[in-house]
Structures are given as C-alpha cells and as structure tokens.
Amino acid sequence: MTALSVTGLVKTFREKSGNVHALGPVSIDVPQGSFLCVLGPTGCGKTTLLRTIAGLEIPDSGNVELMTRADGRQPVVGYVFQQGALFPWMSIYANVEFPLRAKKKGNVDRITRRQQVGTILDTVGLSDFSSSYPHQLSGGMQQRAALARSLVTQPDILLLDEPFSSLDTRTSQDLQENLRNTWKEAATTVVFVTHSIEEAVYLAGEVVVLGHRPGRIVRRQTIDLPDPRSRLSPEFTEYLVSLRRTFEELVEEPD
C-alpha cells in the first residue's frame, strides 16, 4: 500500500531577482508504514518538498496524493518544524492539546483530550512539564513537545523538517532513538528531512538523496540494518561512507 505518492512535483519561487527553480520534477512513492529520509545539502529544496506535501506550498505542477484511510476519512498529517513552532503563550499542555480542540469538526471532549495529552506527554517524557511554558524548557525538550503535539492526533503520515538539527549531538541522538521507537509502535508513515547523513542512516528504512537546486532525486538507498541500530557497526559505517561519497560527487559537480 502506498501511503503517499508524489508525481512530477515542480516548484519555482518568484523573487525580485527572478525565478528560482527550487525543486523537481520529483516523483516518489512512500509505502505505508515506512520510514523515509530525504537527505540533501543545504538549499537543495528538501524542505520545499516537505512543505509542498504538507500543503504549505502550492506546486507549479505535479501533485501529491495521500491514501484515504481504511475508514474512508481523509488521512491525518502531522508536521514538525525545525524549531520554535510551539506557541510561547501556551503551556506545554495547551500546546499539545491544541490540535485536539482546533479542528472544524470531530473535536474530542475535554476528558478524552486530557487522557490523550497525558499519554503522549508520558511517551515523550514531559509529564512533569505539562504546566511549563516553552521558554522554560531546553531546546531538546521543546522539540519533544513539538513532536508530542504532532503525534497526539495519531497521524497517518508524520512529516519532520530537520527537527533535531538545532540540538547538541547527545540530545539529538536521544531524540532519534525515541522517534524510531515511537514509529515502530505507532506504525505510521514517516518522511524525515535532514542534511545529516548519520541521522538518515540511523533512522531510515530508505534514504533518498536530493541533488543541488533544482532538487532532484539522485539516489535511492534502502537501509537494511537490524534494530537496535548501532552507530559503531561496520554495516552502519559502510552506508555512511557510501552516502558520503554521493554527497562529495554532488559538491564536485553542482549541476
């Protein structure tokens, strides 16, 4: 089953200095329950790809199709931004509760909300901070909260835009492990954008490498590593080196 299907996606930004062809054409099918990492150097259009999938950008051509759920309803999409997307005037609890009460219809009642928010805060380890405000939390905890906010709706597809890139290595690795475990339990489809090869190899079931602007897929690589993944295993290093080589080639011939 394909959870997400992107066909011939092209995106151009109109700026004063002229048009910037940022992306495409890109086509990918993402199977249901898979973990896809979109890997690429800065400015390759990987964020644009993700934003277009989420409906935050309108593509010039091509289209994005999300699989309808088994119960016939529109699929729920979760999105995690790089940083700072929590609402600073709301407590962590209110932030995580936000998507449960903000929808047009089908909002759940207060008691169910309390339960769901409680469970998800527990999962990301923030139960003790539900009444804190974002600015009182460390960067890592803020991103946990942001993750909780997009998981609380039990999304069919979770889109993440370099969510751990502003964190220190230790925190970032903790959160990667946390995310991978969450993904395995929840069985959602994940599309994760990153510029870190190591992060991609640790997380992904499949990696797609985007080349320089305009972003196009230059390589698809399945990561076949057993869980729990070790960053020190020779196989891990092999993937790392192989993808690094692709990266080097991209830098040598930018076009």
Binding site: G55, V77, F98, P99, K103
Partner: peptide, 25 residues
C-alpha cells in the same frame, strides 16, 4: 508566519487560529 503555519498543519479552523494564535500574538 511559523505560528500560523503550525496552526494550519495542525488542522486548526480559521476562527480558532484568530482567537488562539493571532490575538495572543
């Protein structure tokens, strides 16, 4: 813009965004 986009991807209806995102900002 980031907060408006966050509200949008979280599926918030317009009136809710107005009351809970725009006014507090």
């Amino acid at each position: 813009k980031l907060h408006l986009e966050a509200a949008k991807v979280l599926g918030a209806r317009k009136a809710f965004v107005f009351r809970h995102v725009m006014i507090p900002s």
